[in-house]
Amino acid sequence: MVALSTVPRARARLSLPALTLRNAYTLVAALIILVVLAWAIVPGLFTSHSPYAGITREQFQAPSGAHLFGTDQFGRDVFARVVYGTRSAVLTALVAVGIGLFAGSLIGLVAGFFGRAVDAVLGRLIDVLLAIPAFLLAVIVVVSLGFATVNAAIAVGASSVAVFARLIRSEALRVKGLPFVESAYLVGGNKLQVLFGHVLPNTYRSVLALGVLQFGIAIINISALAFLGYGSPPPAADWGLQVANGKDFLYRYPWLVYAPGIVMVLTVLALNQLNKSISKGR
């Protein structure tokens, strides 16, 4: 607020910790993402339990040293199911973001760069896509394609096309007006050379930041689809499906909901933090 200039008696060192604190957040976020990626790639390294085979007499065990996140109604190790569920969560979210990023970038870049009639048509399309609540759009797509995790990924990707397109369109419009783009024409560049040589590289950072943010949103939306039963059917080890399974036992065995839930929240939170760091250019 209205600044009070402090006149410190000794040496002031207020801004330094603040600076490192933000870096610390980014570091922790990066660590979480690294762990999650490692779970996705080599789940076997992190748990000796099987995600599918359960021991019936060991059902509903509370979290302990033997079962870090406890066990479910079939006596399956919840931690193992979370770890093995990571791959599907990460892969589907990756597919979703890939679709949204590719289609959205193409639409947005073309609309923003070429402008005029092209922009009028594509801009309308973006507006219409934005008018349909993203989650409902995903539901419609997944209903049309059939209930499966891959289809859920495609659906969530389709629902994020408009968000990407809008950002990249406005970025392309901004970059297009900068003097260095005009300069590129003056030194003999043609439209395509300028588009791919100057406009695209300069929208890269904000696209990357949005991609990371959308990655987290995709994890949430895909698991929400799974929660409602529009993903792959049980016994697939999927985070959203695990929460859905756990909700029937929430009263007596809350860890069935909390364990996969907290992992999911931490993952998305870490992605949001990375998004902030990227857009601030740190």
Partner: peptide, 22 residues
């Protein structure tokens, strides 16, 4: 805001049921 954005709707609902109802 960043924290709220990271919490899936259904999870918040279940936590609220667990805490306030159960």
């Amino acid at each position: 805001p960043s924290l709220f954005l990271s919490m899936p709707n259904f999870l918040i609902g279940l936590v609220i049921i667990d805490v306030f109802s159960f």
